[in-house]
Structure formats: structure tokens, C-alpha cells
Design a protein around this nucleic acid. Structure first.
Lengths: 200, 200
DNA sequence: ACTTGAACGAAACGGAACGTTTCGTTATGT
DNA sequence: ACATAACGAAACGTTCCGTTTCGTTCAAGT
């Protein structure tokens, strides 16, 4: 008997290389803690305990709390950022609807909230979040580029800016715990948002 | 000599009542720490040190960090939430412009960011923030009620919802450190936001 | 006038999480 | 075979938590 106890469950080194089992266990534990208790109960100690991992192992691969959070966040399956229904209004409705469903039903909402909160403290997290969002606007802007090509949207619309404006609303709802938006209410919101962008 | 040292600078009890001097010193120290170092360096210990106050004094009047933050926040001088220029577009432009200036030049931005971040951890802060925002939308909605009375805005516009949508954009900019919006760019944003709400 | 009681700043408490170091073990790469 | 590196566990000193204890300074009630 080489170890004192719990030898059967203890993960150990697989040599001079990263252990994927440890990586998975840590990321899963981090996500679980975040979803169950929110950012308030999220600590490296807690993650290490839950994952049965050593703190140095976590610090080796995720130097800061923010980096670990972002890694959890990026593991999430994401919704289609640029649906193509043929009309701008239904495109936006579907985009926001998918996003709300992803945040409400999955773990995405809790994790994303935490990332945003962390970005208010950690400049590195803030930068990473900004880069990510810029990419999202770029991709999502495709909705408006298509609509402009169809002649559905006026020419002064800036696709990336329009995307930012539109997603800002659900951001705020996420951060203020008011994601329970009924479909007809969401339709009204979309109307407020895109009515003025359409060609009269 | 009754005290050992620093007797000349030490605030003391003024009897069985709250000491306004201590209250001021604590709130000012809290604001300074928040502005200088952000929420990351904001702790009750740090505030007590800076204010030369005892921790029990702080905990007596501000039971939680969130309550202290909200108190600092409410001390700020606020911009006019419902300017009346006679036209919806210029009303909104002025509102957002004033808000941006307040956040950029004063301490309002840093403090408000911290309140939002704190609300992601503390449910009580979240509730207080939600109540405050609801009141703001109610007041700011006056812009749209006036515009509707003038026949400038279509009838399906919901004043409070429109206000929430419009302020969501600057919220997101505040939280992602991108408040440097040039006047002409802000004018473009306002155009995106209100063009569709106007009577054709 | 005297006593009671509450607020004040300072100091110290036990507990939790921080980020780091030390250790013995495991297994890869040379 | 041997150096190297990752692993989990344990312990380190530090910081902040929220609370308690202490001696003081006064206002309020008797």
C-alpha cells in the first residue's frame, strides 16, 4: 500500500504533462459551484475541495480566478449568433429568444453574470470580455449586413453598433435578474429596437 | 493626558448618538478607495483604516458592504433624468450626454460600476438596485409621455420600457470600459434608438 | 447632581480564503 | 537509467472577515 487512504479515487500525475482528468474535474467543479452558489461562493479553495485537486494544480493552469471563470464560460455551448429567417425582425427575435433560453435553462446565465462581475474587478478579465464581445458583434452584425443587402434596412445603420445596442438590453436584464420575458413582451422589445432601422 | 497619542486628531463619541463627523469620514474614505482602486481594493478594513474609524462603528450603521456602497452611490449628485428640449431626439441625446459626462468626469461611474458588480453577489444589493432603477425608468419615462402627448411618438411605445432600452446601452459601455463616446457617435446611437419610435 | 446607556476608536479574537512552498509519488521524455 | 514535471496533500504567513472586549466621552432620564 503506497498511499494512506482514498487511493482508489485519487487522481495522480500521469507524468510530465497535463492531466486531462484533473482539468475536467476542476472545470466541472467550478461550473457546479458557480451555478449552485453564485460568484459569492466561488473560491479556488472551494473548487479544489470539490474537484479533489491540489491548489497548486489549479494555479498552475489558471493563474487567476478570472481566467478560470472565462474557461468555464467558453466551454458552454452557444446559440446561433446570426439566425437567417429572411426578415430582420424575426432574425432579432430569434436571436434574443435563443439567448434568453440559453441563459434561463442552461448554466450559461449564471456563468456569464459571474464573468461580467469579475471584469469589474480584474482588468485582464475586462479585456478578455471586451475582445469576446467585439467578435460577437462582428459575427452578429451579419444579420444587418444581409438585411441591408436585401434593402430592408436603412443605410446609416452600423451593423456592429446595432448588434451591441440590441444585446445591451438582455445584458441588463441578466444583470438585474429579470430574464423572465414573455414572448409577446419580447416581441414588443424587438419592435422598439428595430422599427426605426427599417426602410419606411 | 488621558489618551496615549494622536489625541488631537482622534474622533470620539459625542454621546449616545451617531457622530456625523464619523459618518462623513467613513463615506468619504469609502468613495476615495472605490475611485482610486476600484471594487477590488474596497474592504471594510481598508475603509476603517483610511477613515481612522473603528470597524464596529462601520458595522453598526452599514451592516453589509453592499449597503455602504449604495450609501456612497446615493450621495452623488445626479443628472437630470428627464430633460425637456421639446423634441424626443434631443431629449434622449441630452440625457445620455449628461449621464456620460457624470460618469466620466465625476466619481459616479466607478461607484455605480461597483454597485452593479456587488449586486451580482449580494441579493439585497440586487433588490435595492432593481428598486432604484424602476424608479428611474418611471421618472425618465416622462420624456416619452410628453412626446406622446405632442404626437411625436407612436402609441405602442411603453415609456418605462423605452427608457430601460435606451439606458441599457450606456450601462453596457460603463461595464465594458468604453464610455469614450464622441458626440457624433452618440448622435448616431440615439438615432438607432429612437428613430423607430417616432411617428412617420 | 448622579446614574444609566449608547456611540466612539483601538485592539484582539477565531475563521476563511488568499497565493506559495514543501513533500512524496507517478510517469513521460531523453 | 535518469532528469524533469505534474499530481494531491499539507502547511505556511497574510489579509480580511464579522465579532467581542476595553476604556472613553457624552446625552438623556431620574
Amino acid at each position: 500500500m503506497t498511499t494512506k487512504r482514498a487511493a482508489e479515487t485519487r487522481r495522480t500525475s500521469i507524468g510530465a504533462q497535463r492531466n486531462p482528468a484533473s482539468q475536467d474535474a476542476i472545470l466541472q467543479a467550478a461550473e457546479e459551484i458557480l451555478v449552485e452558489g453564485g460568484l459569492g461562493s466561488f473560491s479556488i479553495e472551494a473548487v479544489a475541495r470539490r474537484a479533489h485537486a491540489g491548489k497548486p494544480t489549479i494555479y498552475r493552469w489558471w493563474p487567476t480566478r478570472a481566467i478560470l471563470l472565462l474557461d468555464v464560460y467558453h466551454r458552454q455551448k452557444f446559440v446561433d449568433i446570426a439566425p437567417d429567417t429572411g426578415a430582420i425582425e424575426t432574425d432579432i427575435f430569434q436571436l434574443l429568444n435563443d439567448l434568453l433560453e440559453f441563459w434561463n435553462t442552461g448554466h450559461g446565465g449564471a456563468v456569464f453574470r459571474s464573468v461580467i462581475a469579475e471584469a469589474q474587478t480584474d482588468p485582464a478579465a475586462s479585456k478578455a470580455l471586451a475582445a469576446y464581445m467585439a467578435e460577437r458583434y462582428q459575427q452578429g452584425g451579419e444579420i444587418f449586413r444581409r438585411a441591408k443587402a436585401r434593402g430592408e434596412v436603412v443605410d446609416w445603420v452600423v451593423p456592429e453598433l446595432a448588434m451591441e445596442i440590441i444585446t445591451s438590453f438582455v445584458w441588463k436584464r441578466l444583470l438585474t435578474d429579470r430574464l423572465d420575458i414573455a414572448p409577446e413582451q419580447l416581441r414588443l422589445v424587438v419592435r422598439h429596437l428595430v422599427q426605426g432601422l427599417k426602410v419606411p
